[in-house]
């Protein structure tokens, strides 16, 4: 095998992206646990951990730029670097949304209560969490078939999001809520909005993996 040093650098880059992905997944899982358990302390730890994700973002960007500037990557190597460079922005944004969710959790009255059917809410939470996990997994495995399923899964998440928003608005309209309750419902609306956006970034990652594996730019919408 020629270019052993270059190949090693590519492997290091890939591993760093996977590690950043794993850190982001843990962050998503932790913030949703903090929500479920009304755990303010955990929410604060999640906020503090965002620095680690941001540091990965800068480190990987530098790695990508060095490879592009010095190694003239081509073909799948080029696509892997371009995918990594874009994907870390998606991961970094997911990390930011996690922080936003954590901040909402901290301000909400405890224990956190959901004023609508919990089943749709729980379904949305579970679906988003799994999408993020799967998006990192597709990057690591190159599973294009799985990556292509993200659009349809995102449609389901969008449907749940709209349905929950509608239910919450109706619940607010029909009840004599206190100001505090209204504020918590507003926080919940923000949280599900952030979750819906997190899923959009997971879809982006899936599309980039399709490009990385097959070079098909049609997936880069």
């Amino acid at each position: 095998m020629a270019r052993t040093r270059y190949v090693r650098k590519l492997k290091e880059l890939r591993q760093n992206v996977i590690d950043m992905g794993a850190l982001t997944v843990r962050s998503v899982e932790d913030v949703l646990t903090a929500f479920e358990l009304s755990d303010t302390a955990l929410a604060e730890r999640v906020i503090a951990n965002d620095d680690a994700i941001n540091n990965f973002d800068r480190k990987i960007e530098a790695q990508c730029m060095t490879l592009l500037a010095l190694e003239q990557p081509m073909a799948k190597d080029l696509r892997m670097i371009a995918t990594s460079l874009k994907m870390i922005t998606d991961l970094e944004r997911i990390g930011d949304f996690v922080v936003d969710i954590a901040e909402e959790i901290i301000t909400m009255a405890k224990p956190i209560r959901i004023p609508v059917s919990a089943s749709k809410f729980n379904e949305l939470v579970a679906d988003v969490k799994l999408m993020v996990v799967d998006s990192i997994e597709t990057y690591a495995s190159g599973n294009v078939q799985q990556a292509r399923s993200f659009e349809a899964r995102d449609d389901r998440i969008d449907f749940l999001f709209k349905s929950i928003v509608e239910n919450m608005v109706n619940a607010l309209a029909q009840s004599q809520c206190s100001t505090e309750t209204v504020a918590d419902v507003a926080s919940l609306l923000f949280i599900i909005r952030y979750l819906e956006r997190i899923a959009d970034h997971a879809v982006n990652i899936g599309n980039r993996v399709c490009y990385m594996e097959e070079g098909d730019r049609r997936f880069l919408k």
Binding site: M1, A2, V7, P73, M74, A75, D77, L78, E214, G215
Partner: peptide, 19 residues
Amino acid sequence: LFERPQDKRTEDYVTGKFG
């Protein structure tokens, strides 16, 4: 050819991994 070569030999050559 440089971004998405179809043949493995092209891929190996343009990525410098021949040998």
